[in-house]
């Protein structure tokens, strides 16, 4: 049989496959079983034609046509998996805490963040060691802004202001966390963002703790409730980011790319946990922290969230799954 006859014979099938692809592409309506079977049949037939293209000596353009046709059909047959929230929930509750506890990068981020935080807080608190440290770190304008924000006792706000501020915190704080995470891939930006945040927050805490700063009382009353979740979330984003950077700097026995890919699978769920914490922290920061509640209530909220974190990291984190016990 001549190629021209062969093409004429096969062309009807290829055209039908093209039409099916177009329909699938345009709207993903529910396919009937018949049509799905027919689609798979046509796809396999086109694959077979492509495989025999050399033996049949099809002209180059027809081969190119077949490559494109099979490629498009392949992309419609094998579709992306969407979010599976049940699986993600299980990952967040079971795998992530174990990973966080055992991950050296998270421990490094923890030490780095809190070390710099306390050092900076001490320098800002006592002007004797480094005069003007607080002014240099926070800038004079920043200090003024801090002082005016907390000049008055927390008297609560309208509920609608709470709603607005909560979404502002969600957007602002989670964005910082995500930038810190992504920057970790290049190591230097990640370390820089982490250190800067630790130093800045530490300086603010240290400065506000000075006895002569009267606004400090209101400041500490404000930050108590959401502190545990927010600061932990920052450390987790930084740690997940470091994991990416370390993956290609010290790949171990894998090649750098494979090591990066594995790190990505491990780091993204940790970042997911961090985002959830940012979200919770923003809710507390928006609704509870500025409210005119007695300080004891806010302290109770802080202790409760700390207890939740301890439960999450220590209890869930030390659990052994069956696979771990065997391996």
């Amino acid at each position: 049989m001549k190629v021209a006859e062969l093409l004429a014979q096969r062309r009807a099938d290829w055209q039908q496959l093209e039409r099916e692809i177009d329909q699938l592409q345009a709207r993903r309506r529910q396919m009937t079983a018949d049509r799905a079977t027919r689609f798979a049949e046509l796809y396999r037939a086109a694959c077979a034609d492509l495989a025999r293209a050399d033996a049949w000596q099809l002209p180059p353009r027809t081969v190119q046509y077949l490559h494109r046709l099979v490629g498009r059909a392949h992309n419609q047959l094998y579709r992306s998996r969407t979010f599976n929230f049940a699986v993600w929930g299980r990952v967040l509750l079971h795998e992530v805490p174990r990973r966080i506890v055992r991950e050296p990068c998270v421990q490094l981020a923890f030490l780095l963040f809190w070390g710099v935080f306390f050092a900076s807080a001490f320098l800002a608190f006592s002007p004797a060691t480094w005069p003007n440290y607080a002014e240099q770190m926070l800038t004079t304008a920043g200090i003024e802004q801090l002082e005016t924000s907390f000049a008055n006792p927390l008297a609560g706000r309208e509920l609608q202001d709470d709603v607005v501020m909560t979404s502002l915190y969600i957007r602002h704080n989670t964005s910082i966390g995500l930038k810190c995470f992504a920057g970790g891939l290049l190591v230097i930006p990640g370390v820089f963002i982490t250190l800067f945040n630790a130093a800045y927050l530490g300086a603010a805490f240290g400065y506000m703790a000075r006895p002569e700063v009267v606004e400090g009382v209101h400041f500490f009353e404000f930050v108590t409730a959401h502190g545990p979740f927010e600061l932990t979330a920052i450390v987790l984003s930084a740690g997940a980011g470091f994991r990416l950077g370390v993956a290609w700097l010290a790949p171990g026995r894998l090649c750098r790319l494979a090591s990066l890919r594995r790190a990505a699978e491990e780091a993204m769920p940790v970042m997911g946990a961090a985002m959830s914490l940012f979200f919770l922290a923003a809710l507390i920061e928006g609704f509870i922290s500025p409210a005119a509640l007695p300080w004891g209530v806010k302290l109770a909220v802080a202790l409760f969230s700390a207890a939740v974190l301890v439960f999450y990291l220590v209890f869930l984190g030390s659990q052994r799954s069956g696979a771990d016990a065997v391996g």
Partner: peptide, 28 residues
């Protein structure tokens, strides 16, 4: 207030998850 909060949240979601959302639901 709800309107402003809605804008802020949508802004955040579009900024970070627009691509991820579509690429998972629209087959890449």
């Amino acid at each position: 207030a709800l309107a402003v909060a809605g804008i802020l949240l949508v802004w955040f979601l579009l900024e970070w998850f627009y691509g991820g959302f579509f690429e998972s639901y629209w087959n890449g």
